[in-house]
Design a binder for these strands. Structure first.
Lengths: 239, 239
DNA sequence: GTGCAAATATGGTCATACCAAACTTGCCTC
DNA sequence: GAGGCAAGTTTGGTATGACCATATTTGCAC
């Protein structure tokens, strides 16, 4: 007998398998970073055809539970907040190519960071302040080297995202960094600009130290909007 | 001859097909909401096996370019910002099941809306105010009916997300609504609580009218935090 | 023209086969 | 015994062909 009786009721046969494997990953039964069993093994385990197994694996991979490089064994990945961002990445990049896309994303970042510095000014703890101070110092030291200035710049802003003690924010920061960097990276750099940017960071820091939310927000908005207009003009973007 | 010579060089055969179809969708050659050609047609068009075609379709579906219900023809979807959020959905839901997940997400919402009402207070236009007023009136009228109060409540907050004129925000609002509703939905409702919530909305509206960002922010924070503590206590959540 | 039943097209699954690249084994050299 | 290399084996990627159940279309009857 060929084409065996197909289960008539349910939707997809692979769904059940996806569910089971997903549970095993979440429960730790399948360890993080360990390779998945071979497709032919899984066929036996679930008594399903290879077609279905492959479909299940593909689904899990698209959800971030497996990392499946073209010709290698899939690797088990226990997903975290970063996985979520990774899975949107491709779609977001398309959005960014549409008119106004980069601008919209950047403006949302400005919005978020305005809130972050306000909160920092009103409620940053001793350790937060210390972290900001360190990041600022590193940024200052990097002024001569545009490459590392770029990275310490990102780090300085990153400190702000840590202050809420909410894991969503650092993830968000990583997302902004990875999505916006491609555009920033193409921007001309100069020590002069580095100095300007450093001065802005210092102004933000000072306002936070002085517990002045309005000043902090204003300094940050001015800083980012200046940077934005520079990037925008660097290669004809809208907004 | 069976298993014809497989292209040795490239990684996945389906990738090229995915790319082409994706382009046709983005260019509009394949219209939004139109059904995709049948798999057997696509086999001819791309001279590929059904295996590869199906894999390509599955990939496109997972990226949100196609909506593939179990037994129907895939439907072409030109992705927008909402597609992106939709594709994170499954991962986010897992995050929410982890300790502190719901709390973290909700606190991020409070953060965003605090910023939104501040901006509304400083820069809402005539039409924004009108929209808020309408939403508020609808909310008031719905006080006796908890079901529609819930929905007009969401709408009222939604108006705030429209004010920045940035397509990311309405999308974000939809995301919050869909991710948090499952938890809200289980909360006990009463006309009394509806009245309390309505009063909060009115307070927010008034503060915006009076162009008082601090009052607006305070009113919103108080409103959401009260609601949160109510939900939290309703079924033992942390945070 | 409308309604419904038969015919057909289509997506979902199974089984089998073959290739090329990845991985394992084991022998051979230094 | 450590290291390297070649043969052998496993595994993922793809192609075919077949069959089921359901969606969709066709076509006849009223």
């Amino acid at each position: 007998m060929r084409g065996k009786e197909t289960v008539p009721s349910e939707g997809r046969a692979s769904d059940a398998i996806v569910e089971q494997i997903q549970q095993r990953i979440l429960s730790g039964e399948l360890a993080h970073n360990s390779p998945l069993s071979s497709e032919r093994d899984l066929m036996e385990q679930f008594s399903a055809s290879r077609t279905v197994i492959r479909e299940a694996v593909a689904t899990l991979a698209s959800r971030g539970f497996l990392e499946a490089r073209p010709r290698y064994r899939p690797i088990v990945r226990k997903p975290g907040f970063d996985t979520a961002l990774n899975s949107v990445g491709s779609v977001v990049e398309l959005m960014l190519e549409q008119p106004g896309g980069v601008s919209a994303l950047f403006q949302s970042r400005v919005f978020v960071e305005r809130g972050l510095v306000r909160d920092a000014a009103t409620s940053a703890g001793r350790d937060d302040i210390a972290a900001l101070k360190d990041a600022l110092a590193a940024n200052k030291a990097a002024i001569p080297d545009s490459e590392s200035f770029f990275s310490t710049d990102i780090d300085f802003h990153g400190v702000l995202y840590n202050i809420p003690r909410n894991p969503i924010f650092p993830t968000l920061h990583a997302a902004y960094a990875s999505w916006l960097s491609p555009h920033w990276g193409r921007m001309a750099r100069s020590q002069e600009r580095n100095e300007t940017n450093y001065a802005s960071h210092e102004a933000i820091y000072s306002a936070i130290l002085e517990r002045d939310p309005d000043a902090a927000e204003a300094a940050l908005a001015s800083h980012l909007n200046t940077a934005w207009s520079f990037v925008r003009d660097s290669f004809g973007l809208e907004g």
